[in-house]
């Protein structure tokens, strides 16, 4: 177990279950090679669905262990908090994301669902953190969890990693340039939204 509380043995123990889930959902993963092999990387994906399958399946697809930013409320629930920590989850606090990125780790953030319904990507508010840590942002689209629901229907899943975005290019003068950061954050959100739509089309039907 490392100092953050992640236990590789527990991560390994969950792997067979995730392998079964991947088969059941006919998961197709694309673009893992676009995730930089070294240094801090912030992976930002669209969220949705009842159970946090997306971050777990994203983490499983990655070649190196990841820190998963999770809702702080999870850590007030008995047993669940222990399981989450062991699997690499940390409370979604800017300080946690920035520290992990600065230590050269992969951090997975799942955005909330936007107001527009399923597959509408919500706000991305970690732009300042990525800039401060000097870490590239990898947009990631996940298609499937919105249909999987509470009953895990055997819908098709796709996870696609996009090209890394360097948000520092949106920082003309200073680190706290709010307008530039907002523009960078919108770019990330738009990219994920476009990738989600693209994958919904390329999936060719959720079930058949």
């Amino acid at each position: 177990m490392d100092s953050w509380g992640r236990d590789p043995a527990v991560v390994r123990a969950l792997d067979p279950a995730l392998a079964v889930a991947s088969r059941w959902w006919r998961l197709h993963v694309e673009g893992v090679e676009r995730v930089p092999a070294e240094g801090g990387v912030l992976i930002v994906a669209n969220g949705g669905g009842a159970f946090p399958w997306a971050p777990l399946l994203i983490a499983r697809a990655l070649p190196r262990p990841a820190r998963l930013l999770a809702d702080p409320r999870v850590f007030s629930l008995p047993f669940l908090t222990v399981a989450a920590r062991r699997l690499g989850a940390v409370p979604a606090h800017d300080a946690n994301a920035e520290r992990a990125l600065a230590e050269g780790e992969v951090v997975v953030a799942v955005l909330p669902r936007g107001r527009g319904g399923p597959y509408e990507v919500g706000r991305f508010d970690l732009a300042a953190v990525a800039v401060a840590a000097g870490a590239p942002v990898v947009p990631c689209a996940v298609v499937g969890p919105e249909e999987a629901g509470v009953v895990p229907w055997p819908v098709r899943w796709r996870i696609e990693f996009g090209d890394a975005i360097d948000l520092r290019t949106y920082r003309p003068t200073q680190a706290t340039d709010a307008a530039a950061l907002l523009e960078g954050a919108e770019t990330v959100r738009d990219r994920i939204q476009a990738m989600v739509h693209d994958n919904l089309v390329r999936r060719e039907g959720a079930l058949f």
Binding site: S3, P72, P91
Partner: peptide, 12 residues
């Protein structure tokens, strides 16, 4: 607290 930073730095 549950949502705390994993490592507090002095400025927190």
């Amino acid at each position: 607290a549950p949502g705390d930073p994993a490592f507090f730095t002095e400025d927190m």
